[in-house]
């Protein structure tokens, strides 16, 4: 089935308790604030209380008919269990972008995920060492994804993360979003990602300004919300919006 390229489908996965649903909620809320449409479906079964769990997020320029999707455009996995259940089956697909936690996800037989086009970043370690609170890993991830998707500005993510934090964590969560955005930004400035759209275009995601992964980046392109924040603008691919 052909992809709707005016919409980005992101699957966030982790273990129950890692804050995956909240990360998706923050992104959805930030998208709403930017004038986009957003839907979020979170796994509701007993898995959400300890096992691998997921949240499916869709962002679009127009109302979203069916909030459900089978194959995401982008999948984040920040635990081994989640990788096994949700990420593994997507490996090798040229139309799906994969993002993992460097230390928490070990892909059997793969020593360097980067070589396979997987974005592998130390989200958890950064939370511990740079922010001093492991609980903000999810906000680091949210901001990293926001940088990758190019649909929601950092300011927006930071604002929502702060709004949804308990008082004692407002600062840490805001810092976490800045750190997450920066981590992805730096990664994209040096890596070329061989993701392709379903039409087979070879894509370089965000790094050179051209965006060819199906859907991803489409929302940031063109006129309208968020235009001025787009990092290193120009050269967007002609994705339908």
């Amino acid at each position: 089935m052909e992809r709707d390229r005016s919409r980005v489908n992101v699957r966030l996965t982790g273990s129950g308790g890692q804050g995956i649903a909240l990360a998706a909620t923050v992104l959805a809320e930030a998208a709403l604030d930017s004038g986009l449409y957003a839907t979020m479906l979170q796994e509701y079964g007993p898995e959400a209380r300890g096992g691998a769990t997921k949240a499916d997020l869709s962002l679009a320029r127009s109302p979203i008919a069916n909030p459900q999707f089978q194959v995401p455009d982008l999948c984040l996995a920040i635990s081994d269990k989640a990788w096994t259940r949700f990420g593994q089956e997507l490996i090798g697909r040229k139309d799906v972008g994969l993002v993992t936690d460097r230390d928490r996800v070990v892909i059997p037989g793969v020593s360097d995920p980067t070589e396979m086009g997987i974005i592998s970043l130390p989200f958890d370690e950064a939370a511990k060492l740079q922010i001093g609170a492991k609980v903000v890993t999810n906000m680091i991830c949210a901001a990293s994804l926001a940088r990758l998707i190019e649909a929601v500005p950092l300011d927006g993510v930071a604002k929502v993360a702060e709004r949804r934090s308990p008082a004692a964590f407002k600062d840490k969560n805001r810092q976490a979003t800045q750190l997450g955005w920066q981590m992805m930004d730096e990664y994209l400035s040096v890596h070329v990602l061989p993701w392709r759209s379903s039409e087979g275009e070879v894509g370089v995601l965000a790094a050179g300004g051209d965006v060819a992964i199906a859907g991803v980046g489409a929302l940031g392109a063109g006129s309208g919300a968020g235009e001025d924040w787009i990092h290193k603008g120009g050269g967007r691919s002609a994705l339908r919006s």
């Binding site: 839907t39 979020m40 979170q42 909030p67």
Partner: peptide, 10 residues
């Protein structure tokens, strides 16, 4: 249904 009940939307 459960999906409508738990879905988040603007």
């Amino acid at each position: 249904d459960e999906v409508v009940g738990h879905m988040r939307e603007g």
